[in-house]
Design a binder for these strands. Sequence first.
DNA 1: GTCTATAACATGATAGAC
DNA 2: GTCTATCATGTTATAGAC
Lengths: 233, 233
Amino acid sequence: MTPRASHGDGAKGVQTAERILEIALRMFRDQGFDGTTMRDIASACGMSLGAAYYHFESKEALLLAYYQRLHEDRQRHAEQLFAETSALRERVIGLYHHHLAALRDDRRLLAALVRIVADPESQASIFAPETRNIRDADIRLFRRAIDSDDVPEQLQVMGALGMWTLQLGFLLYFLRDDSEGQQRTHELVDRCVDFFLPLLPLLSTPFATPMLDRLYATLDSAGLIASALKADR
Amino acid sequence: MTPRASHGDGAKGVQTAERILEIALRMFRDQGFDGTTMRDIASACGMSLGAAYYHFESKEALLLAYYQRLHEDRQRHAEQLFAETSALRERVIGLYHHHLAALRDDRRLLAALVRIVADPESQASIFAPETRNIRDADIRLFRRAIDSDDVPEQLQVMGALGMWTLQLGFLLYFLRDDSEGQQRTHELVDRCVDFFLPLLPLLSTPFATPMLDRLYATLDSAGLIASALKADR
DNA sequence: GTCTATAACATGATAGAC
DNA sequence: GTCTATCATGTTATAGAC
């Protein structure tokens, strides 16, 4: 579902694939995913339908290439953010806001992406191996954001899982948010963060540990604690 | 997206539509949603493609009819459950388990349904007006399950919203759960319920109210507290 | 007005020639 | 790498039967 891996990476092929991707994404943004046919894309690229399919094995693959790009941008931004500040609130809010900002002009693309990623029968499902690396890396970013000696490891892991899940909810709200610059979503994010971050110290006290231990064991035995999260930090 | 509303409800038409639905659902269960074409369904019903489309305006509509059935079954079961017990834990667990049990042999159907309902561009999106009544009624069930004089109204509402959201997560896990009878999902449900139900008394104390007030205000101003939930109980 | 059949269309995807 | 068929399938149009 990614750009055809089997095809060589001769300079020409890569260039052509990039051109197709640029044009396709622009068309998806302008006319929507369903409103753009592969024939439209091919002819806008000045090539035949078959030629376009040579470079991308499916229409979905074009979206997944976008997903990959988005992820790389996000990683870069996070590295910069973490270098700038070690304050938990700034880090967490910074992650959320940047992800929204990056999608600000791409909400139609996001809608199409959600459809594909939420499809449990698709190879590109959010739980599928193909997207697993991206998902794990995303969760790790949240864990790094709240990495602090004051927060027990298990709580960091569960917190990261929770923040990642919450992000899915924010994105769904964002999709439907027609306020100026999706200001409502940004406010929602801020207020939610300001609700749950103060809970961390509370949950870091010995009083809460038995409760958290039980929850962690449950999630872990259900396989919901990604191995990636347990390993490094 | 429901059975063609414009068409009369002559006894024969209804009967035919029901027959199509039965056959289609069986085929979806056996061969998957994508593996079953409208032509297959029509010919299995001994009728032409056009005739099938007369009764159901789209392939999606067949799934949505299933969704509606599922919902009605669920409402009936909940009424019975609430009549049997007023214990919070039994009620909540009863709701979750029955929903899973009803879907036990229909996981392929569920997968197709998730795809449609999760598609933000579809009219049948989980946030779309067409499915809103079902969603609100579902959330109300959760609220009734924890309806108790010991739990403040705002907390009941937020708790119901949370439990409904958690249910979405359980369903996603259920889809991929290949343990015998999806036993793992049932265990996950039990252990999660036993984690969060004891929090209710804790959150019902005056100590927690300011925190909860702020969260409620946030969710409400974001339009996330369904009007249905605020009205009755 | 209620139902069914046939033909046609649009589009994602594929096969095979050059 | 690219092109020109060609296919498969969701959906629509239209004509007719009862």
